[in-house]
Amino acid sequence: MLKFLNKTRQLLYPNVRNLSHTVTVCQSNAATESTTTTGKETLVSKPALILPQNYAEHAPVSRSTARQAWIENVDAVTERKVGLMELHPDVFAAQPRVDVIQENIEWQRKYRYVSMAHTKTRAEVRGGGRKPWPQKGMGRARHGSIRSPLFKGGGVIHGPRSPTTHFYMLPFYKRVMGLTSTLSVKLAQDDLHIIEDVEIPTKDAQFIRDLIQERNWGPSVLIVDKHDVFPENICYATDSIGYVNLMPAYGLNVYSMLKHDTLVLTVEAVKHLEERLLYQLHRNDAASKQTKFKLDQV
């Protein structure tokens, strides 16, 4: 049922339904082809990029729920399916804990926020050193300072004091769960697209605009590659567009993913993210990440 609903994203194609059984020849061809960038003419005859998931190391509970996603091209505005990729269900079909996503967003907002709201206490307000009137005999209430908090223009008690840091650390595995949940949500809502690489043919920003228009992405798009050095063309093309941003995979975070409507990952970035997140979910020294956060920890 779900697969049927996901027909735009997921496969209903009997030949390659079970990617694990596809021919290894095709796979090795695809692997070599993907590394070499060839011209537009040769790309048409290129074999499909079939990337099955290797479950040997981290087997999911149920393989039947593994997601499959198309790999799209970016060398032209028109959409072409270049291949198919199997995504690990622990990363891309995890329980969509929207509450954990919200906690991540709140944490990302707060940990860097320093409140500059400031009020003066009675000691800091100018004046008020002398007793305004004698203690007795005036028929007035006794007061020692005109800057007492009872006075208009006096100091403020328990007011905000700057700088107040709102730094705190979200537990490590909540951060991991935030990433897996957000990736799963993005995939489930058809907001996650996988592209071959980030090699676009021109430096023209109009190309990116047309691409987004044609493929019904965005409007705001976050493009993620594995490395932080992007090819020249895409840097020039996206530079002037405020709503299209580039990000290396190590910088991927919940806030940026949700800030952009569409998340576009390269094949390499998907593999890298899967590898890193599965490692965090299965690491041997997990207890060392679950200790209390210390400011001077490495």
Partner: peptide, 8 residues
């Protein structure tokens, strides 16, 4: 003496 990377 080197620990395994992930849980065996």
């Amino acid at each position: 003496l080197l620990p395994p990377r992930t849980v065996p």
